Every structure is written in structure tokens, then in C-alpha cells.
Simulated assay, not measured.
Amino acid sequence: MSHRPFPGRRSVLRGSLAASAALTLPTALGAAPAFALSGRPKAGWGVQTGDVTTDSGLVWVRSDRPARMIVETSATESFRNPRRWHGQNLRAFNAQVPSIIQWDDHEVTNNWYPGEILGDSRYTEKNVDVLASRARQAFSEYYPISTLRRPDGRVYRTQHYGPLLDVFVLDMRTYRNANSPDNQTTDPVGILGREQLEWLKRELSRSRAVWKVIASDMPIGLVVPDAGDGKPNLEAVAQGDPGAPLGRELQIAELLRFIKHRRITGTVWLTADVHYTSAQHYQPSRAAFTDFEPFWEFVSGPLNAGGFPANALDNTFGPERVFLKAPTVANVSPAEGYQFFGEVDIDGDSGELTVRLREQDGTVLFTQVLQPGRVGQ
């Protein structure tokens, strides 16, 4: 648990901060579960404090049941006039901000695909399909996603937000083909699977929203390798060949062609996965495949994960990297920065869509304003 501000600098003795933690059963946060234990919560694993400075500190505690953590801080070891802090910034965030959740690889294991058999000796269960099934159950118990209650357990869905916005949430993990060099000239499965691709085309054509945001768990024109087994396999859509579409690019080409020919306007792609932030503009005049209308793709996240250098661009769909911020070395600790998130606002009067790419502290790094109904922006 992290809090700012703690007591002021003048009231803290040489940058040190005394702290104690207690646990209480949740009250207003909801009734205790049916399996609740009797008595007060216990923290048999102890309490840890770390990274204590003159104005902040980190406190961890683990209890034997759901509970609320209360932390008291004092400027002196005698704990005179302590200040009390109620736990879970995350809990407050989740209570105030509705979320649209989609899964990718790390909900199961790195870069997984259906039918994969792991060679990692650390896993006693090697069948990724079994691991994915277990992960899906845990995912549905942790996150409020109605589609996971369907018999097919699918994650892809459409979220409607009135006349200005529809969000199309993709699942580029469950229905994909195996990771490979991805240079085949025909690919019926691709990265979406045929059923999901047809659903997306149908839903886009039905949408009357001004903006149609495609929440894609993987980028379109960034080359994301999968070198886990020592082979030159690819993890996302692009495979580094700047020519005509191959492999998974064939599905994306089919989708982009459909959007153009059906005259579907207002599509914007939001994605993450690659551990930095950037903005790409896709333009047919720069591309090997030209049968599509220009569009934007904005990349940010994931939060609280190592930062990685920028991925190479694949010119099949003509991306231009308009903005980029990424570390120059791999797996930079979150404590060193390179943590990003994006913000999208739609003006209720003009219909303008504004994207801001921000750093962890909220600093705006890049802003792009898009006009409704305008092709080629």
C-alpha cells in the first residue's frame, strides 16, 4: 500500500517513519464471506515496510481472510499523536472507475497459444490448454465480465456507451494459431479466429456510434518476437516483412478492407502489450497493402511491469511512428520509471476525440485530437 502525502518533511526524524499495521474485518465494504473464520483476522506472516522516505512509504501485510488494513504512522518512535491511514488505493480506484477487462498472455503463461505444450521444466502441467482453462476460471472469479459466464466463455464483446462511443474488446489470445515465423500465404485461423473476425465485422457494420474504439490486446504494425523456444517465431500480427500481407496480417488486411468498403468511420485502435508508449498513424500511401482508410493506433502499458525498448515497425500497413517513449535496455524496473497510461476524452458537443499519453505521475507526453467523421486524419 502506498500513500502520499505522509507527515510533512519537518515532522519526520531524518527521513525515517515509524509505522504499525492492524487488520479489521470488512464492514461497509461488504458482508463477510460464508467461509469467514471466527475471531479477529490474523497476520501470521508479519508486516513489512520498505522504501520509507520523508514523505512516503510502502507497507505490506497478508491476512488469513478478507480484511481491511489500517496503518498508523508517527514522526516519533513513541507514536505520540499518530496519524491513521485506511488501506487499498486499488480498492478505491476500482470502486470509482468502471473497467473493461481483456486478457492476454500473462494471465496464463508468457506468449501462450492454444495447443501449446510447454518445455519449461518448472511446470508440472505442460498442456497450455489445461492451464488456460484454469486461468479462465480464476479470471472470471476475479473480474466482473459477463461473457465469461457464457457456455463458450468468450472474452471478446462490444461495450456500448451511447451515440458517441462503442468499444470492441478483442481476444487475440484464445483463438489464434500457433506462434511461428508467420509467413504463410494462406491463414484461415490467424490471430482472431474466423468466428471472432466475422463477429467484429458484423458489429462494426451495425454500430452507429461516432467513435468505434477497437481494444486490441496486441499491436498491428509492431514486430513482437517470440524467442522462447529459440526459433524465429512471431507473437503478434506483424512479422517484419514489409511486403504484401502474410500469415496473421491476412486477417487484419481483410478487416481493414471491410472497414473501407463498408464506409465505416471513426475507428481508433488502442493497445498495450509491448511495455512502452507510442502513437502510430497508418496510411495506405506508405503501405504495401493499400486497400484501407488511414487510422491511428495508440500504445500504452502495461502498468507496473518492466519497461522494454521499442519494437521495429512492419511497413505492410504503412505505419509512421509519430510519438515514442521507451527505455533503451530491456526489462527496466518500474521503480526507474517508464510506466505509462493513456487517457481518451470525447467532447459531448463537438464529438472531438482527444488521446493523451501520460507518464506514471500524470505528465502528458503526447496529445492527438481527432475529428468525427473525417477520413484520412
Rank of each mutant, 00 (worst) to 15 (best):
V71N: 08
A138E: 07
G30E: 06
L222K: 06
G44Q: 09
Y161A: 10
S16C: 11
A215H: 13
F289W: 14
N311M: 08
F295R: 01
V332M: 09
D226G: 02
N233I: 08
Q377V: 02
I252F: 14
E198G: 00
N111E: 05
S2K: 12
G337Y: 02
P302C: 00
V130W: 01
R202Y: 04
E77R: 15
D129A: 07
E293L: 11
D349F: 00
P41W: 02
V268W: 03
D152V: 06
G190R: 04
A67T: 12
Y156F: 12
S285Q: 14
Q137V: 11
P242M: 09
L255H: 10
A287N: 07
K325Q: 13
T124S: 12
S74R: 10
L58S: 14
A227C: 09
Y156K: 05
P114W: 00
Q102V: 09
R65G: 08
L37P: 12
R9A: 13
G15H: 12
H261S: 08
V299P: 03
E77Y: 09
G351M: 04
V169N: 03
S205P: 06
Q339H: 11
L90K: 14
A305R: 15
G266P: 03
T54V: 13
N81E: 12
E107T: 13
F366K: 13
Q159Y: 03
A330T: 14
E195I: 10
D347S: 06
S99A: 07
T174Q: 07
Y142W: 07
P232F: 00
G39K: 12
P319H: 03
Y113L: 05
G266L: 00
E195Y: 05
P372M: 07
K231H: 10
G247E: 02
T185M: 11
P41Y: 01
L192C: 08
K42M: 13
T24R: 15
K212M: 01
V169T: 02
N315I: 05
M172N: 05
S207P: 08
S140L: 09
G162D: 09
R358T: 09
Q184V: 10
G301N: 08
A244P: 11
Y282R: 10
Q239Y: 04
Q283E: 14
V224Q: 06
L200T: 00
P327S: 01
N127I: 06
F289I: 07
A138G: 11
E293D: 15
K201W: 09
E359G: 12
A22L: 14
D171C: 06
S133D: 11
G39Y: 07
V299D: 00
A238F: 00
A19P: 08
H160I: 02
Q339G: 12
G318Y: 00
I259R: 15
S2T: 11
Q339E: 14
A92Y: 10
P284I: 04
I259N: 10
G266S: 05
